[in-house]
């Protein structure tokens, strides 16, 4: 048996392809559908733009200072409030409330989710309760909690904790019970003990859902804090803003808003950082 193989040497131009390039070739034309490389420090671009528009508006007089104070007025006010100690005090009070409520809610919500997600008995007891509780908006509990706990710190911390724990519970429980059945099968086949199955398959598999809950809970806890401080407080950033409203001090209100924004931005960035570390095995579009 003889085989004849026609080989084309790569150097020689095939017949028909002339220098004028009747068949012009180039790099493949392809649209990349995933997002490209992230712009360095891209996330500050939006806020900077907003600041620029705001400054321009104030400087040109287009913005009435009684409606919106100029950025530099806000800065000066922040300086003054820091100097007389009101801003640091309020900041500390607010942070304390948020931190206490958040940590309590995180522990409670995650624990409940583990109890419900890892045992049928726990699921029967806990899940029904939480689903009922969940249908009452957290802020709707304010009157009852004030009645029970008074208008002190305790009631604020408790409301924040309830909000955070419900969010953490729902996300973590869904992640724990939504574990891919293929991995369950694998664990059965390789003969993992129940404990190792939970430790090495269920919990790591539920971590992405846990982090979704964490980010939602962080945002939610600031929201609840702001509401609480503006209607039922005698201290804290919200109280500072509430008083400023009575005296029409837009600059003080803006200082409060900026502080809230920094809180929110900082905590979200923190959670994202931890998430990237912990879930380093994930390769997502965001890179």
């Amino acid at each position: 048996m003889t085989l004849t193989i026609q080989a084309t040497t790569t150097g020689a131009a095939p017949p028909g392809a002339t220098a004028t390039g009747a068949t012009a070739i180039g790099p493949p034309r392809r649209r990349r559908l995933g997002l490209g490389r992230p712009i360095p420090y891209g996330r500050v671009l939006g806020p900077l733009l907003l600041l620029a528009v705001w400054s321009a508006g104030s400087a040109s007089g287009a913005l009435d200072p009684r409606i919106l104070s100029a950025p530099w007025t806000v800065l000066r006010t922040a300086g003054a409030l820091t100097a007389d100690g009101r801003l640091p005090d309020s900041l500390l009070t607010s942070l304390q409330r948020a931190a206490l409520g958040f940590s309590a809610g995180l522990v409670i919500g995650t624990t409940l989710a583990l109890v419900a997600g890892l045992s049928r008995l726990g699921e029967a007891v806990v899940d029904g309760l939480v689903q009922v509780q969940r249908s009452v908006p957290v802020l709707g509990l304010i009157p009852l909690m004030i009645l029970w706990l008074g208008i002190g710190e305790a009631f604020k911390v408790v409301i924040i904790a309830i909000g955070v724990s419900i969010t953490m519970y729902i996300q973590t429980y869904a992640a724990l019970t939504g574990i891919d059945s293929r991995y369950v099968e694998l664990a059965e086949v390789v003969g993992l003990s129940r404990w190792r199955f939970v430790r090495q398959v269920v919990i790591p598999g539920a971590l992405p859902g846990f982090f979704v809950g964490l980010r939602l809970a962080v945002t939610g806890s600031w929201l609840v804090l702001i509401v609480l401080e503006q209607i039922n407080a005698t201290s804290g950033i919200g109280y500072l803003m509430f008083q400023a409203q009575n005296y029409a001090q837009t600059d003080v209100i803006l200082v409060g808003l900026v502080v809230y924004a920094l809180f929110g931005f900082g905590s979200d960035a923190g959670v994202r950082l931890i998430e990237r570390r912990v879930l380093s095995w994930r390769r997502t579009l965001a890179g």
Binding site: Y183, L186, V189, V190, Q200, P204, G205, L207
Partner: peptide, 28 residues
């Protein structure tokens, strides 16, 4: 008894070696 599935069914959150020793007693 061991099973090989149609998909490799590796746990994405465990490194390759940790996946291999998953079924061994000491394979934490």
């Amino acid at each position: 008894v061991s099973v090989v599935f149609q998909d490799s069914r590796l746990l994405p959150w465990r490194r390759v070696l940790d996946n291999v020793v998953l079924g061994l007693a000491g394979g934490g």
